[in-house]
Amino acid sequence: MRILIATDAWLPQVNGVVRTMSTVVDGLRARGHEVEVVGPDRFHTVPCPTYPEIRLATWPGPTFARIVKAFRPQVLHIVTEAPIGWAAWRWARRRGLPFTTSYHTRFPEYVQARLKFGIGPCHEILKRFHNAGEATLVATASLRDDLAARGFTKLTPWTRGVDLERFSPTHRHDWTKAFNVPGPVFINVGRVAVEKNIEAFLSLDLPGTKIVVGDGPQRAALQRRFPDTIFTGRLQDRDLASAFAGGDVFVFPSLTDTFGLVLLESLACGTPVAGFDVTGPRDIVGKGGARIGAVGSDLRAACLAALKADRAACRPYAEQYTWAACIDMFENVLRPFPAPH
Rank of each mutant, 00 (worst) to 15 (best):
R94W: 13
T136N: 10
G151Q: 05
Y51T: 14
H171F: 10
C303F: 05
N197H: 14
V262Y: 11
L11I: 11
I187H: 09
Q218N: 09
D257T: 09
T20W: 04
L97D: 00
G118S: 14
C269E: 00
A65L: 02
W91S: 01
D310Q: 13
K116E: 13
E53V: 11
A245V: 06
I211L: 10
Q218I: 00
S203H: 09
T105Y: 07
H33C: 05
P217E: 14
V25N: 01
A6M: 12
F201D: 07
V14R: 14
R106C: 12
Q320R: 14
V333K: 12
A193L: 04
L240E: 08
E331D: 14
R29G: 00
G85A: 09
R114C: 05
R225V: 03
V278A: 09
E36W: 10
F117A: 14
E53W: 01
F201W: 07
R114G: 08
G288A: 15
F107Y: 15
P336D: 02
D237F: 08
R72H: 15
H130K: 08
H173Q: 09
F252D: 04
N332K: 15
T105D: 04
R225T: 13
Q112F: 13
L222I: 03
A301V: 06
M329I: 07
V251W: 07
Y103M: 02
A312D: 13
W86M: 11
D298M: 08
A245P: 10
N180L: 10
A88N: 09
R224W: 02
G275R: 11
R191G: 01
T322W: 01
I284R: 09
V295Y: 11
T20D: 12
F186T: 01
L235Y: 05
W89D: 08
A294N: 02
A339C: 01
R234Q: 14
A290Q: 13
I211S: 03
G270S: 02
S168H: 15
F259R: 12
H130M: 09
E199A: 15
F231M: 11
A135Q: 00
M329C: 09
